[in-house]
Design a protein around this nucleic acid. Structure first.
Length: 418
DNA sequence: TCTGGGGTCCTAGGACCC
DNA sequence: TCTGGGGTCCTAGGACCC
């Protein structure tokens, strides 16, 4: 059996942990630059706040209903997530942290357990230890556990947040209840295609011929069909090192000057290099892209990207920044209003397995330099930068509703008034 | 004025090898 | 008239996830 545990309205719930006045109140969390709604409490959902709604378009709605608005606070969410996962890891030796708010547990040898009780226990302990509400779905396969989790969340009164799918009858009922578009692995395109052939729920999907599924949805679809039919096909996946790492951001306003963009790109290059070093990887390639504002059809549009090669596998900010800059010069065109840019590093290798080249290799001093810079920045809040970066830091991300980093900064911990 | 930021896997087709 | 059979690697694009 597999369990899927998922935090309810995770970001909104994190905000509530340190601000209990928000319980029962509608809460939304916004994306970077306070752009769109990316998380909603149940109350906010009930008021009709759509996922992904641009904040400026629903300003009036937010005000009218006294909805509490937060900028995203990833320092807080990441830390709370780690605490929740840590606790849930006690419930099975085999686990897969699937996302910031989801974890799969493999429950092998739990035949003598009352799994519903086991799930309820998790809910209680996580709530008591972290303040975060979770839902638990348990079933014979991963994709079914997803279904069970959805049922648990949909019927809190009946399930108390934990639901087990096990008997053939429960399986059939659960799958028939699940609309095709809500199936894990079936997105918009496939849902449309399936509805066209009169497949409206998960049960009907499992009854399709293998050949059709294979042809229209590739082996990925076929694996899903098997798994959803009760044949365990999707297993826990190891938390592998990332194969790509990206830093991409929208600018808080549009930029036209090369100098401004150059500075921002240098900062992204520094960030992405740091991420590489954190997972002990080096990169061979970097893709850099530049976009104008897609929402301004009154302005000329220009999108372009380019892949640049590193002279050797590296995670040195100096080398990566330099390579990225040559790419930027080739794709930047004057006369456009740029709104977004990003860097994706690819072809990652562990830095212990670097392929050395005969003539050119990294200056060995870079490694020591990077280690020193990383260490300094950990203690001194990112004050050591390359000359090409934002030394003056004239730009600032819109974060007008940011809560404190309650659990990771000593200066921002909660105060108790006597 | 204002519209997020990450990831994964698979397939087809082209270029190349013997 | 008629032109083999087996591979690999890479990339772009399309689907999906949170």
């Amino acid at each position: 059996m597999f369990a899927l545990i998922d935090c309810n309205n995770f970001y909104a719930s994190c905000e509530r942990v340190f601000n209990p006045n928000l319980n029962g109140q509608p809460v939304v969390v916004l994306s970077n630059n306070d752009g769109c709604v990316i998380a909603r409490s149940n109350e906010a959902k009930a008021l009709g706040i759509p996922m992904g709604a641009p904040a400026f378009k629903i300003k009036e709605l937010l005000r009218q209903h006294n909805i509490h608005v937060f900028s995203s606070n990833y320092a807080l969410y990441g830390d709370i997530s780690a605490r929740v996962m840590n606790i849930l890891g006690n419930y099975s030796p085999e686990l897969e942290v699937y996302s910031i708010d989801e974890i799969f547990l493999k429950l092998e040898g739990f035949d003598l357990f009352d799994l519903t009780e086991y799930g309820l226990k998790m809910i209680e302990v996580v709530k008591r230890s972290t303040g975060i509400p979770i839902s638990v779905g348990i079933a014979p396969t991963k994709s079914m556990a997803k279904v069970a989790n959805k049922i648990a969340k949909k019927f809190p009164a009946r399930t108390r947040g934990a639901y087990v799918i096990q008997t053939p009858d429960q399986i059939e009922k659960g799958l028939k209840w699940t609309q095709i578009g809500d199936v894990w692995g079936i997105g918009r395109q496939y849902a449309k295609k399936l509805q066209n052939i009169q497949v409206f729920n998960a049960w009907q999907f499992t009854n399709l011929p293998d050949e059709y599924v294979r042809k229209e949805m590739s082996v990925v679809g076929l694996r899903l069909k098997r798994d959803l039919s009760g044949e365990p096909t999707l297993d826990l996946e190891e938390v592998a090192k990332k194969k790509n790492i990206a830093v991409t951001r929208s600018f808080e306003r549009m930029y036209t000057d090369f100098e401004d963009i150059r500075e921002r790109i240098a900062t992204y290059a520094g960030k992405v290099s740091y991420k590489l070093r954190k997972q002990n990887s080096c990169c061979k390639l970097a893709y850099i892209f530049l976009h104008t504002n897609v929402h301004r059809d009154d302005l000329a549009q220009y999108h372009n990207g380019i892949t640049v090669q590193m002279p050797y596998e590296t995670n040195s900010s100096l080398v990566i920044t330099k390579a990225v800059m040559t790419g930027l010069k080739r794709i930047y065109k004057e006369g456009y209003h740029y709104k977004k840019a990003g860097i994706i590093v690819m072809g990652l290798t562990p830095d212990t397995q670097k392929q050395l080249t005969f003539f050119y290799n990294e200056d060995p001093r870079h490694k020591a330099l990077m280690q020193t810079i990383d260490k300094l920045n950990q203690n001194c809040f990112d004050q050591v930068k390359l000359g090409a970066q934002d030394l003056k830091k004239v730009w600032k991300m819109q974060q007008n509703h940011l809560s404190r980093r309650y659990s990771t900064r000593l200066t921002e911990v909660i105060e108790v008034k006597v």
